[in-house]
Every structure is written in structure tokens, then in C-alpha cells.
Computed example of a mutant assay.
Amino acid sequence: MNERYPSSASAVLHGQTTADILDTLPDMADGLQAQLIELYKRPSADRCDHMAANLAGAQVTIRKLREAIQREGTGDER
């Protein structure tokens, strides 16, 4: 368990913890960056569709992070 943020019993019922989600962000950023570079180098409709789908997935992850932050009372807003 990542000790940056406290876990919450309600996190088990509601999904991932803030720390769990935060731990995924660097890999997500690397993946999106690589896709954007590939799209720049070799633009295609298929790559655009794939990029758009992955950006939608990133948006869902960020919304889950927001929910976890609010649920756990973590983040800079405390």
C-alpha cells in the first residue's frame, strides 16, 4: 500500500484509493505521450480513433481520482 494517502474502509466499497489511482498516472502519461508522438509522425484515422478512446479512458480515470480524493479527504483541498 502506498503510504502517501490514508486508505479508507469506504474505498473498498467504492473502488480504488487515491494512492492506487495516482500510481497509474505516470504510466498513463507515458502511454498517451507515445501515442501522440506516433500520431504526429504517422497520422491516420485509426490512430485518431485509438487516441480518442484512450483520452476518454484517461478522463474516466481522472474522474475516479476526483471521487477518491473527495471520499478520502485527501489532496490539497483539505
Results as ranks from 00 to 15, higher is better:
1 M>S: 11
2 N>T: 09
3 E>N: 11
4 R>E: 14
5 Y>W: 14
5 Y>F: 15
6 P>K: 14
6 P>L: 10
6 P>R: 13
6 P>C: 01
7 S>A: 06
7 S>D: 08
8 S>L: 12
9 A>M: 01
11 A>C: 14
12 V>N: 02
13 L>R: 08
13 L>T: 05
14 H>R: 09
15 G>E: 05
18 T>K: 02
20 D>K: 03
21 I>T: 03
21 I>C: 03
22 L>G: 00
24 T>L: 12
24 T>Y: 00
25 L>K: 04
26 P>E: 10
27 D>H: 12
28 M>G: 03
28 M>L: 15
29 A>T: 14
30 D>E: 15
31 G>E: 15
33 Q>V: 08
33 Q>A: 13
34 A>S: 15
34 A>L: 11
35 Q>K: 13
36 L>E: 07
37 I>Q: 13
37 I>L: 14
38 E>I: 02
38 E>F: 03
39 L>F: 15
40 Y>D: 12
40 Y>V: 04
41 K>M: 11
42 R>H: 15
42 R>Q: 14
43 P>L: 07
43 P>S: 05
43 P>G: 05
44 S>K: 05
45 A>R: 12
45 A>K: 10
46 D>L: 09
46 D>M: 04
46 D>W: 01
49 D>E: 12
49 D>L: 13
49 D>Q: 12
50 H>C: 01
51 M>I: 11
51 M>N: 07
51 M>H: 10
52 A>M: 06
52 A>W: 00
52 A>F: 02
53 A>Q: 12
53 A>T: 11
54 N>M: 10
54 N>Y: 01
54 N>I: 00
54 N>V: 02
55 L>Q: 08
55 L>T: 05
57 G>D: 14
59 Q>K: 10
59 Q>E: 12
59 Q>F: 02
59 Q>T: 11
60 V>D: 09
60 V>H: 07
60 V>T: 15
61 T>W: 02
63 R>G: 02
64 K>Y: 04
64 K>L: 13
64 K>A: 15
64 K>E: 15
65 L>Y: 06
66 R>I: 07
67 E>G: 00
67 E>R: 09
68 A>I: 04
69 I>L: 15
69 I>K: 04
71 R>Y: 02
71 R>I: 04
71 R>G: 02
72 E>M: 03
73 G>K: 08
73 G>H: 04
74 T>N: 09
75 G>C: 07
77 E>D: 11
77 E>M: 07
78 R>T: 11
78 R>D: 10
